[in-house]
């Protein structure tokens, strides 16, 4: 399988603080790649660098063989990167369908195609009945579905999900897992940041662990959870003893 995303020695500093320190990893086409780590370990910063919201101070990002390190965020979307934000970010005063259709119009130059894709994405995420509502009327789960519809409509090669299970009840989280699996089987590669490890470990093919901006482990979920350094970071030295 070929690499869809390749991050080489990504470094990001905020003044004197090094948020990411030469982080390198590859994501293979069609896999679900998990990123875990304690708060402040640099997970969201890494997604911000991949999506272009933050410019890295060092390193290179390759998407499907193209160097996108200096590309603006909106251009990366057109190349196939889509993102779900931590804490459910939508346009609060635009109806549900416009939240999705604007993405479609930005990606496709054809208005008719954009509308068709919007209808499809809303149907797939179960939001068609609420299409004319404002997002403020949606439940947290439906808001997540709206973000998911936004991802689907852009027809991405790779989707970056930042804590997709946060704020969801277990049945809703299970539905989200099914949805991720379904679209993964249809060809979308996923990078998922998640604190609720039991959900992530169910679906991730590989997991990378960050701590204080440094990659400390990478591998299959069952291997990573046994890694002494990961146990140290997650449970602390005293617990280990």
């Amino acid at each position: 399988m070929s690499e869809i995303l390749k991050c080489e020695e990504i470094t990001k500093r905020f003044g004197g603080l090094t948020a990411l320190n030469k982080v390198s990893f590859n994501v293979v086409k069609g896999e679900i790649f998990g990123i875990i780590g304690p708060n402040g370990s640099g997970k969201t910063t890494l997604l911000n660098v991949i999506t272009g919201l933050l410019k890295p101070d060092g390193g290179r990002i390759m998407l499907d063989g193209t160097d996108i390190t200096k590309l603006e965020p909106h251009k990366r979307v057109k190349l196939g990167i889509a993102r779900m934000f931590q804490g459910m970010r939508v346009f609060p005063y635009l109806p549900v369908y416009l939240n999705v259709e604007l993405v479609a119009r930005a990606v496709y130059n054809n208005a008719r195609l954009a509308r068709a894709k919007t209808s499809w994405a809303l149907t797939m995420s179960g939001l068609l009945p609420e299409a004319a509502e404002l997002p403020i009327k949606l439940t947290p789960y439906k808001l997540r579905m709206l973000e998911f519809a936004r991802i689907l409509v852009s027809n991405p090669k790779i989707a970056l999900l930042d804590e997709p299970f946060a704020g969801l009840e277990s049945s809703e989280a299970e539905s989200m897992i099914d949805l991720i699996k379904k679209f993964n089987s249809l060809g979308i590669t996923f990078i998922i940041i998640e604190h609720r490890l039991r959900y992530l470990m169910k679906i991730a093919n590989r997991v990378m662990v960050l701590n204080q901006g440094v990659k400390i482990a990478e591998g299959k979920p069952e291997e990573v959870v046994k890694n002494p350094q990961v146990i140290e970071v997650y449970f602390g030295g005293e617990t280990r003893k």
Binding site: P73, F91, V103, R105
Partner: peptide, 23 residues
């Protein structure tokens, strides 16, 4: 559609850029 893009920029510019709108 352009008017709604302007509104999207006003409501969350970072999000607008992240979903593909050339803000």
């Amino acid at each position: 559609e352009f008017g709604f893009m302007l509104r999207a920029v006003g409501q969350d510019e970072e999000l607008a850029e992240s979903v593909g709108i050339n803000t």
